[in-house]
Design a protein around this nucleic acid. Structure first.
Lengths: 205, 205, 205, 205
DNA sequence: CATGAATGAGCATTCATTCAT
DNA sequence: TATGAATGAATGCTCATTCAT
């Protein structure tokens, strides 16, 4: 291994080290607990060092978000490769996202952070990163819908729009989890979720 | 008017005064600009006074959120009373919510704040407040669906679930506005929104 | 003494306390050593407290500058009231400014800070403060020139311009103190200063 | 070319490369924006390399200052060689310096930085550098005055002192530009400048 | 020669909240 | 009731410089 490669590797290791620290914070105390100085302490690196490896806090957030999205992608990818009914696939994907939002709450939070915050904008530089990670999930869903249509199981003129709508519905409903004890009253949030998924799938059958 | 009533009235006046200040800040500089000391300056009241009338910052946020929800409710209420087709009503409501999220961005932000933030939970005390304001919107939609069913225009076994799903879909899709330039690519976000609404309504026809 | 007066007095005392700390820093370690946290430590007050009494660091700087200008003013005022020849007055004022720049170096520095820094701009709010303090010195000089003209000692069509020029020359030359060992070579800086003052006064005789 | 010369040449090339970067920063974002790491990025050299070619940041500043002074020198040199009246020459030089302070603001800033900053002292090593660049301007002026005296146009016993005074006056008055809106009131700063130059020249006629 | 990783003190400023008056 | 003084931890970020490679 040449000097260059080793350097690059070491650099990656440090970046990972920082990310590890940030992730540890995220999972131990939540999104709000992530600050550069905390990461610095957690990683046992100087503050300046953090900034040497990441341009700013946002970049670290993006990295964490990418992790979350990648994890979610892999989960959905598994399902998409299963040899099951297309409708069933969508159902399982929905369930998986629901589960993800509960069990990988912190990853969900950070994904949501970029989607919900009134102030955050994606810097152009990060556009590609988001594209690479986030879009792939949508493509996965669209592929299933496309295939379903081909196989004659689904009937939908605009599979792309449907896929986004599908995902948007899941996303919006997960937010409503917070309302479980109030607005939703006796409605079980999970049943509501299932109902919606059914409805969606039925709408393209 | 007894002493008690007068006192209560005065108390309400002060609370309103504080809320006015907070709203001014919200609309002039956004959610993030609201701080107790800023409210104190804006309202020309001492910080201590703010804390006398509101337990903490969150309570003020809740009050602002209620305002936003009330405004949104009134908009939707107008539509619901119109003498138009039930499907059309739902379409108009959806459009109105979309418009609200753009034109009353700050109110939308604060509503969203409670729905999206990973840390905020509704304290039991606030449950009733949320019920009073937020739930009514859902009821409005449910009534339309119910009526549509009665009239034989719609066909849906669980109108309540559908209403929540309807709202959740709108909500989730509005969040995706941020992705317009990246993931959605050439998809027009608004058209996507319209498509989804059509789909939803069609699914109960 | 009413509550109001006492409060106002106490407030002034605190402001002074903070200013004392800032001045101590200025005189012990120079302009560059003044930072809010240092002032906080020196004054044994919390950082937040500093900000309660002063809007920002600049405001403290302005206060210090005012002190310096006031001191300088009083020195010049003394001279201006002396019963001596008008030319002699100007000479003494010049000498006094020279002395001030050496013996009250730190005050000179902070006055100079606002005059020389490429980035500092006077906020409109501070305009009046500057007016009140700085302009008075110029007026003092102008009064002497005016009087000299009236008495027939001086002959000058535009006493205001001359006064500013007079002051500007002194100011510029003091800056050249730094060049004593290099550009000025064997020229004594002080003699150069005296020469210039003579020249200026002679020019209106 | 021997090895030594080549080495020296290469060294100079690197130094220039670094200076180019620093100048770019100076002119794009001002004096305050110059930092070693910024220069490093701009020049595409490592920070360590910068330190190899320049002892510290100050040395780079000195180099930039020399550039500025050299530019100013060349401007003044042009004027000094013109076949015009000696008084006119001084007027044009003054005007040129004024223009320089406005149009080459960043160069003026960095020259001023060394003259005004309370902390910077010229290290003995830099003495020669300053001599070479700064002093020449003064000599230029002195030559004009000398010549004027010889020709009988001027009458002045100490041309060197006068030249420094001349320059000091210009310098000090340029600083007062900042006071234009406050202390100077309705006085036009430029007219004040012109007035002062006239006065100075007249004083040696 | 050249690199660039590492440092950590330092910066100005904001914040929600408390509490004695 | 109403005040507003006081807090100090916390924020993201920059900096000049060093030094092992």
């Amino acid at each position: 291994m040449g000097v260059k490669e080793r350097k690059a590797l070491e650099k990656q290791i440090r970046r990972d080290q920082i990310l590890d620290a940030a992730r540890t914070l995220l999972f131990s105390s939540g999104l709000e607990s992530i600050s550069i100085s905390r990461i610095s302490k957690q990683s046992e690196l100087g503050v300046g060092t953090i900034y040497f490896y990441y341009k700013n806090k946002e970049e670290i957030f993006v990295a964490l978000q990418k992790e979350g999205v990648t994890l979610l992608y892999s989960i959905i990818f598994q399902i998409s490769k299963k040899d099951i009914d297309h409708g069933e696939k969508l159902i399982r994907i929905a369930k998986a996202y629901y589960k993800f939002s509960q069990e990988q709450k912190h990853y969900f939070d950070i994904i949501n952070y970029f989607l919900s915050s009134p102030i955050v904008f994606f810097e152009p530089d990060l556009k590609n990163q988001i594209d690479m990670s986030g879009r792939k999930i949508l493509v996965l869903i669209k592929d299933i819908v496309d295939e379903g249509i081909q196989k004659g199981v689904f009937n939908e003129k605009d599979p792309k729009k449907f896929s986004i709508m599908f995902w948007g519905t899941l996303h919006g409903l997960i937010h409503f989890k917070k309302l479980e004890k109030t607005i939703l009253e006796k409605e079980s949030h999970e049943k509501l979720f299932d109902y919606s998924v059914q409805k969606l799938i039925h709408s393209i059958k």
